[in-house]
Design a protein around this nucleic acid. Structure first.
Length: 479
RNA sequence: UCCUCCUUAGCUCAGUUGGUUAGAGCACCUGACUGUUAAUCAGGGUGUCCUAGGUUCAAGUCCUAGAGGAGGAGCCA
């Protein structure tokens, strides 16, 4: 018999029909004459209830069924007399495809800590929380491509191994085929990378932006959505060593167009989740309420679905860095020196406590900050006429902080060249980037959206290690 | 990398000012129950108290070092 997915089965009213389902046991319970098995196949967060009569014939099989076992069940679809579900399956035959020894199987039908499940990442897909996150993650991946496709963007695969060491986004992982126990050296005693696979030093990419710009200056609107690697020793709930980043890059867009796109895209993704993932969002919402039930009312987060709808309905607040500094300088926590870093004046970098104040206390909605001092931002950002600021924009979300960082790019050859010199970036590694400003240069803009940070927002999870299947962080590369 | 906290049964956790044989719930096994909803009820055994030193008559508890984890900070997405 052909397998019916549980998602399909639960929506059917074909009572009396015989079907086959396959899946993994979540719980088994029952009394003397009847056993109830909650079976899940990942097609939905919901389980199908298998009802099995206990008699001398079935007892042997039923005794071997525990949480975690894989079953194939043939049975009749019936209307459930119980109160927890509409449809259930009256078992006619149960095959154990793969047993799970209850003495060894670590997952139980109870609450496990997220830390414990992180150590069991090979099995945590089998929990409600992670199967929900995985389905939402898929929906978001799909929605990203959908959005850009519908808006006339082309997807670009930018390189994962890069020979440029000037991308200006933090520490990089070296990629080499050299024998590390016998590294070739040149006359000066330095590593001789000419003997390496590419004949030069290479790294894993920290951003696809520079290459995406090259494509945008021909195809007008492009985006990348690929893995990104940062060798920073960051130990926080918002950082991964390997993560996925979405980087659109648009010719003929100025900073305002860039912000419009960022806001529209984020709202599209939220709407897509609300339209397509409601079962999972409702589960994740309950999970969050439960997790925070011991917190004081003022420390609890907004209910998940309500929060998503709220952000969807708000225009993001757009302010300049200069205005942000004014607000912060006159704020209570600054005057009372409650900030760890008190804002003294213009030019200071905004710390996460300042961003959180602006987003969570002052405006109480997402905020886009623009026109930062050029000294605290990257070399490729478009310089403003004031000579002090650049057309950068950061989108700040409650709890997560910076979810998007972007800018209009410097399209003037001389200004870009001078900035590269000023910041001591090796000019010879940037010749191809500079050349695009020499031939048919146009205003263009782009941004980077951290996919897992968006997943944090979308699922209400608190730790970025729980929204990616196999997190890579300092000292953790298991699985 | 810095600051703070944590590490006790398979899991979640309690363990008082250092003092007999280290506890509970869940899971597991046995039994009861005509349909349960993380079923319920009764019974059963379960420990490298993270590791290595140290203080002490006596250490799960105190001290030192190390390992791992969490939260916050920096870096950023």
């Amino acid at each position: 018999m052909k397998r019916t997915e549980i998602k399909t089965l639960l929506q059917s009213t074909g009572y009396g029909k015989e079907v086959n389902v396959k899946g993994w046991v979540r719980t088994k319970r029952g009394s003397k004459h009847v056993a109830f098995i909650a079976l899940n196949d990942g097609s939905t967060i919901k389980n199908i209830q298998i009802v099995a009569e206990i008699n001398p014939e079935t007892e042997k099989t039923l005794d071997k069924i525990h949480t975690g076992a894989a079953l194939s069940v043939d049975g009749l679809v019936i209307e459930s007399p119980g109160s927890g579900q509409k449809v259930e399956l009256q078992a006619k035959n149960i095959d154990i495809l793969g047993p799970a020894n209850p003495d060894e199987y670590p997952l139980q039908p109870k609450k496990h800590s997220l830390e414990f499940l992180r150590e069991k990442a090979h099995l945590r897909f089998r929990t409600n929380t992670f199967s929900a996150i995985t389905r939402v993650r898929h929906a978001m991946i799909f929605a990203v491509h959908n959005y850009f496709n519908d808006h006339g963007f082309y997807n670009i695969h930018t390189p994962i191994i890069t020979g440029s060491d000037a991308e200006g986004a933090g520490e990089m992982y070296q990629v080499t085929t050299l024998d590390l126990s016998n590294v070739p050296k040149n006359e000066n005693g330095e590593v001789d990378f000419s003997k390496d696979f590419f004949g030069k030093a290479t790294n894993l990419t920290v951003s696809g932006q520079l290459e995406a710009e090259l494509a945008a200056l021909a195809l007008s609107k492009v985006y990348t959505f690929g893995p990104t690697f940062r060798a920073e020793n960051s130990n926080t709930s918002r950082h991964l060593a390997e993560f996925w980043m979405i980087e659109p890059e648009m010719a003929f867009y100025d900073i305002r167009d860039d912000m419009d796109l960022a806001e529209d895209m984020l709202k599209y993704l939220i709407r897509y989740a609300l339209d397509n993932c409601m079962d999972d969002l409702e589960f994740l919402s309950k999970r969050l309420l439960d997790e925070e039930k011991n917190k004081k009312a003022e420390e609890r987060s907004m209910e998940l679905v309500e929060k998503l709808r709220f952000v969807l309905d708000q225009d993001f607040e757009r302010i300049t860095y200069t205005r942000a500094i004014d607000i912060l300088r006159n704020s209570k926590p600054n005057k009372k020196k409650k900030f760890r870093f008190v804002i003294e004046g213009w030019g200071a970098d905004l710390q996460s406590e300042h961003e959180r104040y602006l987003v969570e206390k002052y405006f109480k909605k997402p905020v886009i900050i623009t026109d930062y001092p050029k000294d605290i931002k990257a070399f490729y950002m478009k310089q403003n006429e004031d000579g002090k600021t650049v057309r950068a924009m950061d989108v700040l979300f409650p709890q997560i902080g910076e979810i998007i960082g972007g800018s209009q790019r410097e399209d003037d050859y001389d200004k870009l060249y001078n900035r590269i010199k000023e910041m001591n970036i090796p000019e010879e590694s940037m010749w191809w980037y500079l050349e695009t400003r020499k031939f048919g240069s146009v205003p263009h803009s782009g941004f980077g959206l951290g996919f897992e940070r968006m997943m944090l927002f979308m699922t209400g999870m608190g730790n970025i290690r729980d929204v990616i299947p196999f997190p890579r962080t300092p000292l953790n590369c298991e699985f």
